[in-house]
């Protein structure tokens, strides 16, 4: 409804669609909630997908820029695979190891990520992967505290998180 006469004025288009990715996400979520791919739900979902970002725009002063959605999908696939593998490993540890034999330890991770969204996704990934829980952030937000259930050494956990997740998130967000 707002596309035909606005395409030649990008500033107005930007104001009407402040978050294009959020619009797409809202349409998809609405279609999945409606649980049917019909024209009805597509139209209503599109209306909501346009109106919600438009009216909530004042509450999002800093729009995240440079987000790479394609790499994010690959990252989600990697995390789901890691969740399955780590689940089996941790289930084995819980069932077979005695409490006294578990080498549970704190791991401190200096962060290269600076964007709050990226740090949030990293902390969420760490918690979702069984065996590690992100416990706290330093006061200025430059280090992350992680608790590991059973780790060879804090260095190994730190290296794996930095190499496997943080490096990829840096490519996605920054």
């Amino acid at each position: 409804m707002a596309t035909s006469d606005d395409t030649d004025r990008p500033s107005l288009l930007r104001r009407l669609f402040p978050h294009p990715l959020l619009t797409i996400l809202l349409v998809i979520v609405w279609l999945v909630i409606a649980n049917s791919f019909t024209l009805n739900s597509l139209v209503l979902g599109t209306i909501l997908g346009i109106l919600i970002p438009f009216f909530t725009y004042p509450y999002w002063p800093n729009v995240p820029t440079g987000f790479r959605a394609g790499k994010m999908i690959a990252y989600i696939g990697l995390v789901i695979w890691d969740i399955i593998v780590a689940n089996i490993a941790v289930a084995w540890i819980v069932m077979t190891k005695r409490n006294a034999d578990m080498r549970s330890t704190w791991v401190t991770i200096p962060l290269d990520l600076r964007k709050p969204e990226a740090i949030t996704v990293l902390a969420g990934t760490i918690t979702l992967t069984p065996g590690t829980v992100s416990a706290d952030l330093s006061d200025e937000g430059h280090s992350l505290l992680v608790h590991a259930l059973d780790a060879e050494s804090p260095e190994a956990v730190r290296y794996e998180i930095k190499e496997r997740y943080e490096r990829r998130l840096k490519e996605i967000f920054e």
Partner: peptide
Amino acid sequence: PISAHFISKVNIHRKRCETPPPPPEDTSW
């Protein structure tokens, strides 16, 4: 992850667990 994060923050705050080592950057947790 958000609720897990809050539970662990409560654990640290109430000293129910080992006190974590200081952060590599910044002054404190």
